[in-house]
Simulated scan of single mutants.
Amino acid sequence: MQKAVIIGPAHPLRGGLASFNERLARQFMADGFDTAIYTFSLQYPGFLFPGTTQYSSEPAPTDLNIKVCINSVNPLNWLQVGNELRKLKPDIIVVRYWLPFMGPCLGTILRQVKKNKHTKVVCIADNVLPHEKRPGDKPFTAYFVKPIDAFVTMSEKVMKDLRLFTQKPAQQVVHPLYDNFGAAVDKTAARKQLGLPAEAPIILFFGFIRRYKGLDILLDAMAVLKNRQAAITCGDTQKTISSADIRLVVAGEFYKDEEAYHEQIARLGIADVLELRTSFITDSEVKYYLSAADFVIQPYREATQSGVTPLAYHFEVPMLVTNVGGLADMVPDGKVGVVASPDAESVANHIEELYRTGAAFYMPGLREEKKKYSWKVLTDTIRNL
């Protein structure tokens, strides 16, 4: 049996990368590979992780072989793990790259592995150059890419950034569906579970709150909607609502500048149209938030790709995205949602458009488009590379 190893976050670490890697491991297992995940015993020093905790409160998955062993700041550990994998001789190593800080650690591990002259290494590059720039980004990335045989990216922007460092084989694929959070829940039941009003028009901002994701733009848009008080005849129900009736649920943990958002909310006078659930959303809660929402709003000011988009596809929730990075490539305008400019007026106008059109209009497009987002496509691409 062929062996595959995934290097990257997994339980007991939490977050989108961990969920992705665990789902990818299951697909490799379904493809007939003896599969393991090598994850971090220490992922980030505190100054790089502004959230409350790096660790999941969910039980460990019982169907996966997860080895917690990589220390991102200990060079002796890098050599030890690299030598262990060199002797293991997996046929494929899939390594995640999302932050240049990881370049020295992962680059050193993979240099040791490649000494066995057997293992092929494919990198899934989430980012090559990060959203928030730091000293060392370019040399760390240049060091990391040298032992890699091939790359997978999930946006054109990351592919362009990658080509600044290497011309090795690379292929762009769409981010697969996050189908590991369970099935959708009836909207009324989901809102009851979360303590949200059953009949209110509700939009959702989901995920870690970082500046590039544009929550401040969305808050300004909520003020536009509240002050405008425009009459909207909803496409699904033919009921007329006011734009001031629309409620925004913010579900995700602040990474920094929390006070600035609270000051903005107070200044705009929009606390009454917001529901702030700004602690980490556990895997078991995800389905309730996505199922409770009429629409998912991604008002990013810059982006490569987004893990929220495949989540919305899985739960069949129409989206608003901004025309930055690769977001609009994943969300055909007028088919599965709408594409706005990253400013408050445009976001507000397009939220109104979503309600006027109605979620039902977008369902055929969502169901057709989501067929592209297969984990088998990703593992086949990795094997072919």
Rank of each mutant, 00 (worst) to 15 (best):
I7D: 12
P9L: 10
A10H: 14
A10N: 14
H11F: 09
F20C: 08
N21W: 10
L24P: 00
R26E: 13
D31G: 03
D34H: 13
I37G: 05
L42V: 12
G46L: 12
P50W: 05
S56I: 07
E58C: 03
D63V: 06
L64I: 06
N65L: 14
I66G: 01
I66Y: 01
I66T: 03
N71S: 08
S72D: 09
S72C: 11
P75W: 07
N83W: 00
L85R: 06
I92L: 11
Y97T: 01
G103W: 05
P104F: 12
C105V: 02
L106M: 03
G107N: 03
I109R: 04
I109A: 01
H118P: 13
K120Q: 14
V121N: 10
A125W: 12
D126Q: 13
N127P: 00
R134G: 10
R134K: 15
R134T: 05
Y143M: 09
P147A: 07
D149G: 04
T153N: 09
S155W: 02
K168E: 05
A170M: 10
H175Y: 15
Y178L: 06
D179R: 04
V185R: 02
A189Q: 14
I202W: 01
R211F: 03
A223T: 02
K226I: 01
N227S: 04
T233M: 06
D236N: 15
T237I: 09
S242H: 02
V250E: 04
G252W: 14
F254W: 14
Y261F: 15
H262W: 13
I270P: 13
D272F: 00
R277N: 09
I281P: 05
T282V: 00
V286A: 02
K287F: 05
A293R: 03
V296M: 04
V296C: 03
G307R: 06
P310M: 15
Y313A: 04
M319L: 12
M319Y: 07
G334S: 11
V336N: 07
V338M: 09
P342V: 04
A348L: 07
N349E: 10
T357Y: 10
A360S: 15
E368G: 13
E369R: 14
K371R: 15
S374E: 10
L378Q: 10
D380W: 00
T381Q: 11
